[in-house]
Simulated assay, not measured.
Amino acid sequence: MPAQPASRTAPAAQSTAPDQDAVLRAGLGAAIRRLRKERGLTLVQLARLAELSHPFLSQLERGLTRPSMPSLHRIARALGTTQQALMVATAVSHPDTPASSVHLVRAGEGLPVSNSGGVARMLGAASYAWHPVEYTGAPPAFEEYYDHPGDEFLYLIDGEIEIDLQTFDGPRLHRLGPGDSICYPGGTPHRWRAVGAPEPIRILTVQSATEPHP
Rank of each mutant, 00 (worst) to 15 (best):
Asp164Tyr: 11
Arg8Leu: 15
Ala126His: 00
Thr42Val: 07
Ala22Lys: 11
Gly40Leu: 13
Arg175Met: 09
Pro18Arg: 08
Pro67Cys: 03
Ala89Ser: 11
Leu204Ile: 05
Gly137Asn: 07
Val119Ala: 02
Ala30Arg: 13
Met87Thr: 06
Pro11Met: 01
Arg34Trp: 06
Leu86Gln: 07
Leu79Asp: 05
Ala78His: 03
Val88Cys: 04
Ala22Ser: 08
Leu35Phe: 06
Gln45Pro: 01
Asp180Pro: 02
Val133Ala: 10
Arg193Thr: 13
Leu204Ser: 07
Gly150His: 11
Gly63Lys: 05
Ala89Gly: 05
Ser93Gln: 15
Ala76Gly: 04
Leu86His: 08
Ala13Asp: 15
Gln84Met: 04
Asp151Cys: 11
Pro139Asn: 09
Tyr128Pro: 00
Leu176Ile: 02
Ala126Thr: 04
Phe142Glu: 14
Leu204Gln: 05
Pro132Ala: 14
Leu46His: 10
Pro55Gln: 14
Pro5Ile: 01
Pro95Glu: 13
Gly187Phe: 12
Leu104Glu: 02
Phe56Leu: 14
Ala197Asp: 12
Thr136Trp: 03
Asp151Gln: 06
Ile32Phe: 09
Arg48Tyr: 08
Ser127Gln: 13
Ile182Tyr: 04
Arg33Met: 12
Gly187Arg: 12
Tyr128Asp: 03
Gly196Arg: 07
Leu43Ser: 12
Gly117Glu: 07
Ile163Arg: 13
Leu28Ala: 07
Val119His: 04
Glu134Met: 09
Gly170Lys: 07
Glu143Asn: 05
Pro198Lys: 14
Ile203Tyr: 00
His190Asp: 02
Ser101Phe: 11
Ala50Tyr: 00
Val92Ser: 07
Gly187Asp: 13
Pro70Phe: 12
Ala99Ile: 04
Pro2Gly: 15
Arg77Val: 15
Glu144Leu: 15
Tyr135Thr: 10
His174Ser: 11
Ala197Phe: 09
Leu176Lys: 05
Pro198Phe: 02
Ala30Gln: 15
Pro171Cys: 12
Leu49Val: 00
Tyr155Met: 09
Ala209Ser: 11
Val23Phe: 01
Pro132Asn: 12
Glu134Gly: 00
Leu86Met: 09
Asp180Phe: 00
Gly196Tyr: 06
Asp169Gly: 07
Val113Thr: 06
Gly40Phe: 11
Arg121Thr: 10
Leu176Phe: 06
Arg25Gln: 15
Met69Arg: 01
Leu156Pro: 00
Glu143Thr: 03
Thr136Glu: 10
Phe142Met: 14
Gly124Asp: 10
Arg191Ala: 05
Leu49Lys: 13
Phe142Thr: 09
Leu173Gly: 15
Ala138Lys: 02
Cys183Gln: 08
Leu28Val: 04
Ser71Lys: 04
His174Trp: 06
Ala209Lys: 06
His94Lys: 00
Pro112Thr: 14
Asp21Leu: 10
Thr16His: 04
Ala17Gln: 10
Leu57Thr: 13
Thr16Arg: 09
Met122Phe: 05
Pro149Trp: 01
Pro171Phe: 11
Leu104Thr: 04
Ala197Pro: 12
Glu162Leu: 04
Thr188Glu: 10
Asp147Leu: 07
Gly40His: 09
Glu134Pro: 00
Ser58Cys: 03
Leu41Gln: 12
Met69Leu: 06
Glu144Val: 15
Ala12Leu: 02
Tyr128Ile: 00
Tyr155Arg: 01
Val119Gln: 08
Gly27Tyr: 03
His103Met: 07
Arg39Thr: 11
